[in-house]
Design a protein around this nucleic acid. Structure first.
Length: 97
RNA sequence: UGAGUCGGCCGGGCGGUCGCGUCGGCCGUGCAACCCCGGGCCGCAGGUCGGACCGGGAAGUGCCGGUCGCCGAGGAACGUCCGGGCUCCGCAGGGCAGGGUGGUGGCCAACAGCCACCCGGGGCGACCCGCGGGACAGUGCCACAGAGAACAGACCGCCCGCGUACCACCGGCUCCGGCCGGCAGGCGCGGGUAAGGGUGAAACGGUGGUGUGAGAGACCACCAGCGGGCCAGGUGACUGGUCCGGCUCGGUAAACCCCACCCGGAGCAAGACCAGACAGCGUGCGUUCGAGGGCGGCCCGCCCGAGCACGCGGGUAGGUCGCUGGAGGCGUCUGGCAACAGCCGCCCGAGAUGGAUGACCGUCCUCGACAGAACCCGGCGUACAGGCCGACUCAUCCG
């Protein structure tokens, strides 16, 4: 997967958007992938500073991955992308899924 | 027992914890308007008046938050290929064009669907397959192969006539090198012939005979096919029988076309309501000589009608309804061969709108395919791991 982060000074809590293209699979696979990613982000959304905008993009390998594989990868990517916080320019971190 | 045909059904199950969505119950020093009481202020029409504001109080309503409970994708939700409902276009007119359908009868809200039957083809059979009107209204096309492919066609073969003595054959003579004579088998030219060969998906009916130089529906008998009359059966497609005719007339209409019947347009981002924001300017055409619209292409007719088109600039993209109980499913009975219809009884538990089903654990089995609602139904088509049930056919064995 690929994670994009943009920090703002708005007062709403952190928002997460998901991008799952047709390259991932058919409608059933895309829906399941999106729900799994949503379940993951509800665990980690408290660690993200408020006002942040987060975009999580699923690559085709995410459809075949186990849930705990997605979980370890998501936490690693989130710590990677929030450690480099500073400016308001969007940044991205990702790997093969 | 084996092989097969048709139809129907299911499509992981059970339990627990957390999370998400709709609905409902309860709770709240929560918010808002409505309501009641008190208070001063403002307005002029001077009242049992109106308006905003402050403080207090309450049953109910909406929102928000918490908590509890019920329910929460499919047989194809899919492709979006047909048909309808619903909504808007004021009414939904005529003709042309365009599109669709195509054996007959019925069912249905309607259909390109379903049922029954007819015809043609396949199978021993259950049964299956058929985009099943018209090719004497016209036009076009029929590749390759083949001599010839649509007013057919002589390649081989067969037959006739004429020519020819080079070759073959026959006879005679010979010094064995040949010579002489005959003959039209070969050969050449002209013609006849569609019976045979060969090509093809298809070669202008089949079999037998008469006939002929060889042949030929040229003629005859039977059969097939075409057209017509009559009789019988059927609502009908059509079937059966009989008689007559000319003797044979190819295929393709998912090629144009012809015939019969049907079809107004757009689609839930339809459409309706509430709240909110904004700013207009320029050009052209037009207002009883009618712009533009109803109307997706054209013409006619009818109606509405004072704005319309283009360019620049500006604003908004929130909420509620439509929104799911309907041509709905199941069962008994009745009518019908059936599709289906009717009476009665019972049952119905997605409704999102940046768009709800995920995570973890236990357990069982035959280890789980194709696949995600978006206004709703009826169909068709397509994808699919595995499993269950029923009816029927054929073969074999036993009684």
């Amino acid at each position: 997967m690929v994670v994009h982060l943009k920090t703002t000074d708005a007062d709403h809590p952190a928002r997460v958007g998901f991008v799952v293209s047709k390259a991932v699979g058919n409608a059933v696979v895309r829906n399941r992938t999106k729900r799994r990613l949503r379940a993951l982000m509800t665990r980690h959304v408290d660690a993200v500073p408020s006002g942040a905008l987060l975009v999580v993009r699923a690559r085709p390998a995410a459809a075949r991955a186990q849930f705990d594989e997605l979980a370890t990868e998501a936490s690693a990517l989130l710590t990677k992308v929030t450690r480099r916080r500073g400016g308001d320019r969007p940044r991205a971190a990702g790997d093969g899924r």
